[in-house]
Write a protein that binds this DNA or RNA. Structure first.
Lengths: 109, 109
DNA sequence: AAAGTTAATCGTAATATTGCGATATAGCAA
DNA sequence: TTGCTATATCGCAATATTACGATTAACTTT
């Protein structure tokens, strides 16, 4: 069917999966890393830096923005994209909880 | 084209994205959580617990196994799936590095 | 051997994702 | 106004993903 069934899962599972899914693309990882590294909200630079078409980068930015991983502010004729720390904080604590339970899990096979 | 171009990215970006992508599905999150929680390598139980078809669960297990998130050992007529801690350790440190750089990133817009 | 259990694989239909060029939109500059 | 730049959106083609039923494979029990 190609349609992920969400009626079987908790809201937490759906939310976490959504964030991880959006981050689960190398272009979007590269975009996030670039936004962090350049430390300024350059945006069009991503096109030349990553080497995908402008429309493709714009689409990835849209997805990152849609789930709240980044946020954009219009700044003259360009757009300033930066990290949404609230979402990252939420993701960090959820993921760390998972890591903790993995670490505490005894080997069994 | 539907084909993710990997020639534009570093190996680290591709590897991280691959792990996050596989975890980016609620059924696979539920599977991982269940494997951790039950603390034993039950497997067929996932079908009744999650409520997807047996073939669907098997397919998700295959993907988790393929990227090394879990590992399976044949145990009689059933299979014992459990966490692959080496992969989780790698993922944890990579992700934590990312979280650290996000936290250190100054707000700019 | 025959039947039952468990899990993997195959085939398939429906939907989603990726990437691009072309076009639209909006602010800025001359 | 007329261009120029920056970004978003549209439409499309290629490919990937998701889910399922049916089948297969392998072990267990009778």
């Amino acid at each position: 069917m190609g349609l992920t069934r969400i009626d079987k899962y908790t809201q937490e599972q759906v939310d976490l999966a959504q964030l991880l899914k959006v981050l689960g693309h190398p272009a979007r990882i590269a975009i996030v890393q670039s936004i962090i590294r350049t430390d300024s909200c350059v945006c069009g630079d991503l096109v030349t830096e990553i080497g995908l078409a402008q429309s493709t980068i714009s689409q990835h930015l849209k997805e990152l923005k849609h789930v709240g991983i980044i946020q954009g502010t219009i700044e003259g004729s360009s757009v300033c994209y930066c990290i949404n720390k609230e979402t990252w904080g939420r993701l960090e604590s959820t993921v760390n909880e998972l890591f903790k339970s993995v670490a505490a899990n005894p080997d069994c096979c």
